[in-house]
């Protein structure tokens, strides 16, 4: 049995990393907003989905123009991701302004409900626009970076099978890592980032430091939503087909990744995302082997969530979360 597990391991790692990187960046949006407002922004999954649609829309539009054929694909990709991130960032800022700020002193359940409302609105607006523009709401973007690469693991050792992936896997992974490194630097090393952490710790005192708390919260929503939208583009590129409902389950899993890593903890969200992605892919490849065919790959979510439950039983604060104890 171990032999079979090892055999598929290279492919599991590659698929798991791609999925995990996507979970990780989306999880950042949940964790940042939670850190600053103690709000679970359930509409964040829809921001991700909106990013996937905006990105795909731009790809279709740009590649339909004759002059873009001269532009290298990579440059085109960078342009689309920057535009999409700006759009979704602004949607995030608007969402906070309209749906969350007026409710900031309301009981916590209330903004949670508006978050769900915003989710439905985004799903339907996107569906409407997609249908209006293309006549369908399930879209398949142009296939980019689709060269198949095979790594010959079997020549290293007969224990391993070969693993293959598309070039887009590398793009997804590298972009996600760049985004995470950039965010980590922004939050931990810059003045704005420190202000975000200060507001997360103590909003009232932060305002006594001449920090405009509302601006900092808007910035947080912008950054979190821009990351979510950019990841939507990555997702669309890697998996091809998108519909207005992909944000729900992916958002849920990214949220779980954030909880797994310790909600409010940025590095925790990254770690949680990668672990969840790897576990899911591991389960998809090996569940039927492990259980003698009783459970198949379709039980991968059950497996991943069971691990989550076990982790939370023993570490309720998440993997990197700290039970906060402050001296007064």
């Amino acid at each position: 049995m171990l032999q079979e597990l090892l055999f598929s391991l290279p492919q599991v790692l590659i698929d798991g990393l791609a999925l995990g990187a996507i979970y990780a960046v989306v999880a950042l949006g949940y964790t940042m907003v939670y850190g600053i407002l103690q709000l679970i922004n359930f509409a964040h999954g829809e921001i991700f989905m909106t990013g996937a649609f905006i990105g795909t829309g731009f790809f279709i539009m740009l590649m339909g123009m004759s002059w873009t054929t001269a532009i290298p694909q990579l440059l085109l990709f960078i342009i689309v991701i920057v535009i999409t991130a700006s759009f979704t960032g602004l949607i995030g800022v608007g969402m906070e302004r309209v749906a969350y700020r007026p409710l900031r002193s309301a009981p916590r359940l209330i903004p949670l409900i508006t978050a769900i409302g915003i989710s439905f609105i985004l799903q339907d607006v996107i569906r409407f626009i997609a249908e209006l523009a293309t006549g369908r709401y399930i879209l398949t973007g142009p296939s980019l970076f689709s060269n198949q690469i095979t790594i010959n693991f079997s020549s290293i050792s007969s224990w391993f099978n070969n693993a293959s992936f598309k070039t887009s896997f590398l793009i997804v992974l590298i972009t996600a890592i760049l985004l995470m490194v950039a965010l980590d630097y922004f939050v931990n090393r810059t003045k704005w980032g420190t202000a975000i952490r200060a507001v997360s710790l103590d909003r009232e005192t932060a305002s006594l430091m001449s920090i405009n708390v509302n601006k900092v919260i808007s910035t947080t929503f912008f950054v979190g939503s821009a990351l979510g939208g950019a990841t939507g583009v990555l997702f669309a590129m890697q998996y091809g087909t998108i519909d207005p409902y992909i944000g729900f389950i992916l958002g849920l899993k990214a949220f779980i990744a954030a909880v797994l890593g310790g909600i409010g903890n940025i590095r925790g969200a990254m770690l949680g995302g990668v672990i969840l992605g790897l576990m899911e892919m591991f389960a998809a490849a090996n569940l039927s082997i492990l259980t003698g065919g009783i459970f198949g790959a379709e039980y991968k979510d059950v497996f991943a969530f069971a691990i989550l439950i076990i982790v939370l039983i023993f570490r309720p604060e998440g993997l990197l979360g700290k039970p906060t104890a402050e001296k007064v």
Binding site: T194, E204, A206, M209, S210, K327
Partner: peptide
């Protein structure tokens, strides 16, 4: 109650004062 930012370093606390 002082309300310093407990998770920020002393330096970061001072920097926030000069935000």
């Amino acid at each position: 109650g002082r309300r310093i930012f407990a998770q920020l370093t002393v330096k970061e606390n001072l920097q926030m004062g000069a935000y």
